[in-house]
Design a protein around this nucleic acid. Structure first.
Lengths: 201, 201, 201, 201
DNA sequence: CATGAATGAGGCTTCATTCAT
DNA sequence: AATGAATGAAGCCTCATTCAT
């Protein structure tokens, strides 16, 4: 069958990435062993090196590819909505939806991505910045529409918003009794506070 | 001289902790080598084990002692202020002041403390929770005073606020041109947004 | 070639055990370095850990496997002989034959096995006891046959005999001029003394 | 007071030796730490080095001094007895008496002394040989008196006897229920066997 | 492409010994 | 003489990476 070899390749590559996400989420990057990832992916240790240059490259691939996917999804959802206020609420809601859908990925992206610049020489998390740009663009739109306070610096605001979303997501992920952080309510509350804080009276 | 031996001991212990903060801030816990810490502290590798059970204990000590110090300072500053609104602004301002004063410590506390529960079996960052409790208590006071919206869940809000403060602090620390994040403005903006979002109209 | 991979594995495992026996015999367990053993076995240090959990496990394996081998051999030889007296002489002779055949193994078993219960928590040298049981069973047989004094406690006797055999073996091993302890004569003398001491007049 | 300083010195030196015997008996030489010995002796770690060149010297001192003491005691007891047979029985009895009186010392002498030549470069346990010489001299006397078989090699015999005494002592020391090895009976049995094996009919 | 046994560099930690007080 | 804090050499072990099959 045409493409089957290629598909199998992709299959194996995908399995390695998924396994890496799972293992890194559970143990953190430095404690995740290549052999753990290989076992979960059902491949030999050496096979991983056919698809990735080294351990670090797996992490970088997760950052790049998964963030790109995420950004694509969020952008698609936002395209259907008009009005800066609703678009901001949608962004917030989507963040939590994605975290709930892929909690292990979220954990890797949130915790490991943050400290990546420590241990990956010269790594700049461009994809994270692109994700944040979505938020700051919404702010700018709102300011142009006149619905958001013009004195708010979108650059500063994007980090505030992201920090809040990120922290709550981490807590939800870590939380053993996740019902203490009901997603609907969390999204509603944070949306409410930030919108109230942002909108012109 | 009376107490000199004890003072020297404290001296050495303090030097080790400070060296650890510096090295961990620079390389992250897992890449910080005991020998690096010893070199910075100007002691022999083995000396570290006279003061700490093992590498992990150094990190835990930093968490415990430094957070306690921080909480004490912040609580002291807050005691001088009345009114939930001003107290919240003071909390926000103090957070940035402390981060700017001890950026390396901030980096360790923010990044390593967060993921510590990953690799330190059964570690619960109680001190972080106590820090957050300061914020949620201010919210509750404000709600009782009638100046803060009663529909806000203080538990959720504390994480939002902390996430925002934390993220901006990280960005300030990472930022090579820190003037892009002028502290005064950042504190003012975030205070403004959260207060506006929080206060009853 | 079928089984070649398995054979190679066994090869390497065997080489490690043999190297360990050689190095431990020469230096004693605590002074035997993993790197010494690895060098003698012509493997990398890390390879040893593919076959053994840790250093202690190598020693335990030597105890278990080699004692079992030894017991098997001695039992086989004894099966061909009838009469408690001749069986006892055979046991004595076999002890010296095995020691002369594998002097390094003998040294490890004699010296390290004896003190193993000191440093290996909760280790009970069962295999040593099984070896000794061979002797005490011969005594009991002889007592039932009426050729051995009934007032002799086989349990005490087995230790006396083993102590004597063991001590002479150690002296032979340590002896630089081993001709001072000619095996034939030693076996004959000790057999003669113990038999005379044991038989009913 | 004249001699008090000297006496204190001896006191401290004695305490170190006794502590070393205790700790080495419990953990074996290599696992006995200088700091353990210092703690038991109630002296500082460094003090030990005022009395002994290094760790090895402590062990050697135990070997030399305690064996000399032991030999003196046994010789004294033997002086009161005539007749090779009774003297041999006395030697056997004394061995067990001394072991029971100083089980920890016995353990050190028996187990560590045996393997000392492994780890103490060029150490020859002369004192052990002198102890054994007591036995072989009794044999020679008995042969001259005509009560012991002339075909027995005293040199071989001394090791047989010592091995048996030693093994039973070790088992008594290791034994948790020492009543399984009642001293009187053990001494009587071993004396009976060796005498019967040794005497001319 | 796939395997997984083998490698060996390098880290954490211990502990005999030293030396300033 | 006594102390015990400090030293630093050295060992066990892990694990990312390689390579022969």
């Amino acid at each position: 069958m045409a493409g089957s070899s290629k598909r199998n390749q992709n299959d194996k590559r995908t399995r390695i990435i998924d396994a890496a996400i799972q293992v890194i989420a559970e143990k953190s990057y430095h404690l995740a062993r290549i052999s753990d990832i290989a076992k979960v992916a059902s491949v030999a240790d050496g096979t991983i090196y056919l698809y990735f240059k080294n351990k670090e490259a797996i992490l970088l691939t997760i950052f790049e590819e998964k963030m790109e996917e995420l950004i694509g999804i969020v952008r698609l959802e936002l395209d259907a909505i008009t009005g800066a206020e609703d678009r901001l609420l949608c962004f917030i809601e989507q963040h939590f939806i994605q975290v709930r859908r892929h909690p292990e990925l979220a954990r890797v992206l949130q915790i490991e991505l943050r400290q990546s610049s420590h241990f990956i020489h010269d790594y700049r998390p461009e994809s994270l910045w692109e994700y944040l740009k979505i938020a700051s663009e919404i702010i700018k739109e709102g300011q142009e529409e006149g619905v958001f306070r013009p004195d708010i610096d979108p650059f500063i605001f994007q980090w505030s918003l992201f920090g809040a979303l990120d922290e709550l997501s981490v807590q939800w992920i870590l939380s053993k009794k996740r019902e203490r952080f009901p997603f609907q309510q969390v999204a509603q509350q944070i949306g409410s506070v930030f919108l109230s804080g942002l909108t012109t009276k």
